[in-house]
C-alpha cells in the first residue's frame, strides 16, 4: 500500500525544518561578513575579486532560502532546489580542500578559524544534508501527486 499524502507532507515538513534550522544557524555570516569572506577565500576556489561578493550573496541566499522553506509554501520547491545546489557546491568544495589537506574549518557557521579543521565529519554531515534536501523534494512531488 502506498503511503498517503499526509505522510509525505509530514516528511517534507520535517526535512524543511531541519534544513532551515541548519541554514539559519549560520547567521554569524551576516553579522560578521569579513569572517565569512575569509572562510570563502580559504577554500581557494574562486578568483580573488569574486570572494567578497560571493560571500555576501551566499550568506543572504541561505537566510532567504531558509525563510522560504519555513514561511512561504509557494516558494518552497524553488528554495529546496537552491539549497540542494548550494549543499552540493559546499560538499564539493570541502572534498577538494580535504584532498588538499587544508587545516582550516569549512566556515559553515561563519568563522573558519574557530571551527575544527576540515575532516570526514563535515563531509558526511553535508552529504546527509544533500540526501535530506533530495528527500524533501521527492516528498514534495509525491505529496502533490497523491493529493
Amino acid at each position: 500500500m502506498m503511503p498517503g499524502p499526509k505522510i509525505f507532507r509530514l516528511a517534507r515538513g520535517i526535512a524543511c525544518c531541519v534544513l532551515a534550522g541548519v541554514l539559519l544557524s549560520g547567521f554569524r555570516k551576516i553579522l560578521f561578513p569579513a569572517d565569512f569572506a575569509l572562510a570563502v577565500y580559504r577554500f581557494h576556489l574562486l578568483p580573488g575579486p569574486l570572494v567578497n561578493m560571493v560571500a555576501l550573496w551566499l550568506s543572504w541566499l541561505e537566510v532567504v532560502s531558509a525563510l522560504m522553506l519555513l514561511l512561504v509554501p509557494r516558494y518552497r520547491v524553488a528554495a529546496l532546489w537552491i539549497v540542494l545546489a548550494m549543499l552540493l557546491l559546499f560538499t564539493g568544495g570541502i572534498a577538494i580542500n580535504l584532498l588538499r589537506g587544508s587545516a582550516f574549518g569549512c566556515g559553515c557557521f561563519g568563522s573558519s578559524s574557530a571551527e575544527a579543521p576540515l575532516g570526514m565529519l563535515q563531509l558526511l554531515r553535508n552529504g546527509a544534508l544533500v540526501v535530506l534536501a533530495a528527500c524533501a523534494l521527492f516528498a514534495e512531488a509525491r505529496s502533490r501527486d497523491s493529493s
Partner: peptide
C-alpha cells in the same frame, strides 16, 4: 538575495568592500 546582500552591506556597521585584493 543579491538585493538583500547589497542593501545590508551598505548599511552594515561591519561592511566589507565588494572587491578586495
Amino acid at each position: 538575495s543579491a538585493v538583500a546582500a547589497g542593501v545590508a552591506n551598505t548599511v552594515h556597521p561591519r561592511r566589507i568592500p565588494w572587491v578586495q585584493d
